[in-house]
Write a protein that binds this DNA or RNA. Structure first.
Lengths: 235, 235
DNA sequence: AAGTGGTCTAGACCACTCC
DNA sequence: GAGTGGTCTAGACCACTTC
């Protein structure tokens, strides 16, 4: 058994103090130089320990200022009704407030996406993609990708209603046939659009929207993992 | 505008080649020494670029072997039945195969957990915690934390049935009253138990289990984000 | 034994924030 | 200007994998 790396031991020690509450949220950690001296290592080794703590989400670093124990932001709870397969009616008002401003459209056009084309039963891999963004209090929260059957390319889009609401307003009733939820790491687009670091956790909810028996739209919602959670209440 | 860091430029260049398919999944990347020479930087700078690519999930590094373009593993789909609030009956067999071996118990005992105590309506913060692990094909997949009402400390545990199954076998019927799903980064325990790196994505599903009108158990399931997804089928 | 990534030291200079 | 984190070079030795 190789001995534990110095920087890991330092990270563990600091992590322990954070989780025990000895270093409370918001508290400033010692500087990298101070840690290096205290533990008798080079600054880069102390720095590596801070990298570990950042990766674990325990610490947040600001250039020129220092590192601070991270305050966990309260997550926005997005409700899911198990029966209607949509948000609960009672929660729609709250959601409208949380995501005031509606779906900001980032782009629309034909795109190659083999997986979505397969879900939609479209020959080839071309789908019609609309990309939108939801913000809460100005902060980007959810990146939506609607991959539509190419026949829907002429959709008239109303940002207040969103893509699915616009479909419905145009007379195309819809329902979900399945949903899948998974956790990913932020890719390069997520990083730019959601304003997160490389390696941030992203909560992904995708689903297939039907119109009658016809697949209509493959939806992928990429949500900031630190801000969003999906909640189902059965009572 | 400060110029882009050298290591970021290198990471971007390699990332572009991976995403374009020029470097296909499984392909081995140049060694750190080779990259350093090619880009005219010190090995640590080239290495830092690899760190970025690992954070973005594009690359996987094996000590003594090299770095490889990551093949996305196929996710295990864990079904959720929106009506019964449990796994679908039809899928139980598949799940039993996927997670053959049942719930391996990692520990049990009284523990301080204020949030769970609040959910359970227990005065103070002490709950009875059972920690278990699910493996699929030997690989650790899901870390379960069952935080029980202290009155359940005498639970007779059968690993084939799991904690909730054992409760039910003991005559304590249960149902979920809510579920919440979120995405986290691996904490230090996750890293050790689930055998993932710091900064890995973890899919967390928690819920509150009731027995009649009494809160019975606060369940937290921490799943490897790269291996698990939750699927709800409505048809 | 050879080749690879993992850790660590030493020292330098740059960029950001605050006073 | 002083103090902080961010980037980079130079060089060393260790640990893991393959042959």
């Amino acid at each position: 058994m190789p001995r534990e790396a110095r920087y890991r031991a330092i990270a563990r020690e600091l992590g322990r103090r954070i989780e025990s509450g000895e270093l409370p949220p918001g508290e400033r950690l010692p500087t990298e130089d101070a840690l290096a001296e205290r533990f008798g290592v080079h600054r880069l080794t102390a720095r590596q320990a801070m990298v570990e703590l950042r990766k674990a989400g325990l610490v947040e670093t600001r250039h020129g200022l220092g590192s601070f124990v991270r305050r966990a932001p309260r997550r926005i709870e997005v409700s899911i009704d198990p029966i209607t397969r949509r948000h609960r009616q009672a929660d729609l008002e709250g959601l409208a407030t949380t995501f005031a401003g509606g779906e900001e459209i980032l782009g629309r056009g034909f795109a190659e996406h083999p997986a979505s084309a397969r879900h939609l039963g479209v020959p080839g891999s071309e789908v019609y993609e609309i990309t939108t963004l939801l913000r809460s209090g100005g902060a980007p929260c959810v990146l939506n990708r609607y991959r539509l059957h190419p026949g829907q390319a002429d959709l008239v889009y109303d940002p207040r209603l969103g893509v699915l609401g616009s479909l419905e307003a145009g007379g195309t009733a819809y329902r979900y046939t399945w949903h899948a939820i998974s956790a990913d790491l932020a890719d390069l687009v997520d990083q730019a659009v959601l304003a997160v670091d490389a390696g941030a956790a992203v909560l992904v909810r995708e689903g297939l929207v039907m119109h009658g028996d016809e697949p209509l739209c493959h939806v992928e919602r990429r949500c900031r993992g630190d801000l969003i959670s999906f909640v189902t209440r059965y009572d």
